[in-house]
Write a protein that binds this DNA or RNA. Structure first.
Lengths: 147, 147
DNA sequence: ATTGAGATCAAGAATTATTCTAAAAAAGGA
DNA sequence: TCCTTTTTTAGAATAATTCTTGATCTCAAT
């Protein structure tokens, strides 16, 4: 968890923007639900329990604000709903086709995600997005047991 | 172009499914527009010129059929419209933020795209999706000249 | 050739995630 | 407090895609 921000660090990163109740709440919910990589509506459902007046539009707004401020990461796979992630490490995501779980995959020590790719000279990578689909260890174990 | 399919190879891959005029046409259009990585509606616009009766729904259907048959690849970046690509090499995509072009990035010889990633033991990768955003060599050159 | 079954296509409606709009509420500073 | 700016809210709008339904086409058996 060391790479999840504290609230004060978050306030910093917001720059001039205000640290509002809604922003704090959405951030907390994203952290709370981090292992599930929640979508905007999942965040909304959970946030509503804690602040019934919050609106879906606000959740979307805040998620965008936090993403732009570099406080959370937006994760996309195929054309599914975006998911959000408080992990600021450079990392990839693994999506299990069987149990629909998502988990973070860290970059190896000193590894370079671009290394295997034959980029044309002079390209400048600003962002890299790596997603894997497949079967997670838990599901493989289960299906092995069945066979 | 060696790794783009001929029509007969395509017919094979369709399995039981029929090689129809629409499927042939959509496939040809995707090949023709390959360097631009067209979206469904771009494919539709071009296809309509050659077969005015074709419908957008058919273009979507065919693109899905071809993708499922492994004849073309569906390429997603963030939540933008899907693009389609007849390149069947293992490859990544680079999206230029400045000129909005997309190009293929090949895997280096003998390289393994998963190598930099610290996958938990026992995961089975079925598909890997790598997208990079940044500035392409052409745009960098241009902006260098301006500065 | 004819016919029947199943595959495919066309057109438009429906869906889903997301963004936009406009007005109300909240926050900070003078 | 009052004014200005930011933020929030609710609902409308949008964009890409999928779904539905009836029409059309294909193939294979007659």
């Amino acid at each position: 968890m060391e790479h999840q921000l504290t609230e004060s660090a978050m306030a910093e990163m917001l720059g001039g923007q205000r640290m509002t109740k809604q922003r704090r709440l959405v951030f907390d919910v994203v952290k709370e639900l981090a292992p599930t990589h929640p979508t905007a509506s999942t965040v909304y459902e959970r946030a509503k329990l804690l602040m019934p007046s919050i609106s879906l539009a606000t959740v979307y707004n805040v998620l965008e604000t936090l993403t732009e401020a570099g406080i959370i990461t937006q994760v996309n796979i195929d054309r599914e709903a975006s998911r959000f992630c408080p992990n600021l490490h450079p990392h990839a995501h693994f999506f299990c086709d069987q149990c629909d779980s998502v988990f973070d995959v860290d970059l190896r020590e000193r590894a370079d995600a671009a290394e295997p790719w034959n980029l044309p000279n002079g390209s400048l990578i600003e962002q890299m997005n790596v997603a894997m689909r497949g079967i997670c260890p838990e599901c493989r174990e289960k299906s092995d047991a069945t066979n």
